[in-house]
């Protein structure tokens, strides 16, 4: 008898009390879309390609994002400018396959590919879920402001000669016998 009383009446009263207690608490939900929620910077939403602090494309077309992608929804092709800088000839993400896992961002050695707090990606036509480089590339640095891959890489590119990257000595003169 006591058990029945405890399991039913007490439980219901407690439940009601908990529900009514929330009436006075500020709601977590917002009136989306009229009201926009605060999105955390590390939210894994729409993928972008960023630029380095000098405004050049950060992506060097190394293919690591593509190989890390568990659903294989990234395809790209490397090309090179006259002075040796690598960049993608095309860079395509099929967002209809993307699961926003963020592995691509984690794999990216140049901080080029980043996931952003934007989640509003619905489309009426599925083909529009396929994004090319023009759609992905933004004009800023994204979340990481200072990193420029070519400043730590040994490869010579336009505007950065051999020996001009971080922690690099001037190029060796092979004709010298001095130590």
């Amino acid at each position: 008898m006591f058990t029945l009383f405890k399991d039913t009446l007490v439980s219901q009263v407690v439940t009601l009390w908990k529900v009514f207690a929330k009436i006075l608490v500020k709601a977590d939900t917002v009136q989306y879309p009229e009201e926009q929620p605060y999105m955390f910077p590390r939210w894994r939403g729409r993928i972008i390609l960023s630029r380095d602090p000098d405004g050049e494309e950060r992506c060097v077309a190394c293919n690591l994002c593509a190989v890390a992608c568990p659903v294989d929804c990234i395809a790209l092709q490397k090309t090179e400018d006259e002075e040796g800088r690598w960049y993608p000839e095309f860079f395509r993400i099929n967002f209809s396959r993307c699961i926003m896992c963020g592995f691509c961002e984690e794999a990216c050695p140049t901080n080029a590919i980043q996931l952003t707090p934007d989640f509003e990606m619905a489309e009426y036509v599925r083909q529009d879920m396929v994004w090319e480089k023009e759609d992905l590339l933004i004009s800023g640095t994204g979340k990481y402001h200072d990193y420029s891959f070519y400043n730590v890489c040994g490869k010579k590119i336009g505007g950065k000669d051999k020996g001009e990257a971080q922690n690099e000595a001037v190029p060796v003169n092979v004709r010298s016998l001095l130590p």
Binding site: N94, S96, M129
Partner: peptide, 16 residues
């Protein structure tokens, strides 16, 4: 076994 981009290589021609 690491072949990448299978769902994006041809998606510009058709997402299906």
């Amino acid at each position: 076994h690491r072949y990448s981009g299978r769902t994006a290589m041809k998606s510009h021609l058709g997402v299906h």
